[in-house]
């Protein structure tokens, strides 16, 4: 049994793929730090190399095009247990065919990558749906969110073009980093001394804009009155809007 260990980054994984091709090896597992190793396996430690990673990435792009690159990167973001091996086998299949294979859905690894890609994109879309801004006293709009996967970087472009005239912060409370937009440029930030509650991400009393409560009240009232009582169907509501998002929703949190 042969086990590759890499540093858990995407370039690290691409380096692992490079090394496997280079060494003409077929690893039985490619493991990120902290992953459960194989018993009695011989271990090869991958040393991340930007250069090797770039070459593999360029190769994938040349054969599979941009769409393939996006699929693989999105799938990687899922941090699924088998994602590394799926991406490795997908790449092997891609290079063997020397043509895009993303629609070869009867191939187990292509299907796996396809499904993971969709899963991650669905989560990214949910950020667009369920993210809520709250205006702080200084006028900045603040939005906490804790997506299941690290997808905030995929969606900030959407918020940049939509809310181009307001400064905002979108903060991933689960991963402890976020993005600040000052109406001109976006920068990545880490908040050291949060002025928001850790449970709901709500701005603490006194740090929010004086009008904020009024808008919350209006929105909650709208949310309540637009529903038709005779058609009440809480299961359907939860299917569309899973409970894990409720803590950040103005209309749902207490």
């Amino acid at each position: 049994m042969l086990e590759y260990q890499y540093d858990g980054t995407f370039p690290g994984l691409l380096t692992a793929i490079f090394d496997a091709f280079n060494r003409k090896e077929q690893p039985d597992a490619i493991l990120r730090p902290g992953a459960q190793g194989l018993l009695f396996a011989s271990v090869y430690a991958v040393e991340t190399s930007e250069e090797k990673a770039d070459r593999v990435w360029a190769g994938i792009k040349r054969v599979g095009g941009n769409t393939t690159c996006e699929h693989l990167y999105h799938a990687f973001l899922s941090l699924d247990e088998q994602v590394e091996m799926a991406i490795f086998s997908y790449s092997k299949h891609l290079f063997a065919c020397n043509a895009p294979v993303m629609t070869d859905l009867a191939h187990p690894d292509v299907l796996k990558v396809h499904k993971l890609d969709r899963m991650v994109l669905r989560e990214a879309h949910r950020v667009l749906m369920f993210l809520r801004f709250e205006q702080a006293a200084d006028g900045t709009y603040f939005a906490p969110f804790a997506p299941q996967y690290d997808v905030i970087p995929l969606v900030i472009g959407h918020f940049k073009s939509r809310f181009a005239d307001q400064s905002w912060i979108i903060y991933d409370t689960k991963r402890g980093y976020g993005f600040y937009f000052n109406t001109q440029t976006i920068e990545q930030i880490t908040i050291e001394n949060p002025t928001f509650g850790s449970a709901t991400g709500k701005l603490r009393q006194g740090t929010e804009h004086p009008d904020e409560d009024k808008w919350h009240e209006l929105w909650r009232s709208y949310f309540k009155h637009i529903s038709i009582a005779e058609r009440k169907n809480l299961t359907l509501q939860r299917n569309f809007m899973p409970k894990r998002f409720w803590k950040y929703l103005t209309e749902k949190r207490l």
Binding site: F163, F223, K232, L234
Partner: peptide, 27 residues
Amino acid sequence: RMNTPGGIGNAAKAGICHSFTEDGRCI
């Protein structure tokens, strides 16, 4: 529809639901 310079907002071609009421319909 795209945002305009100094403007607010744009339209998402596929549409976006932002919430779901107790009857399970989207807002």
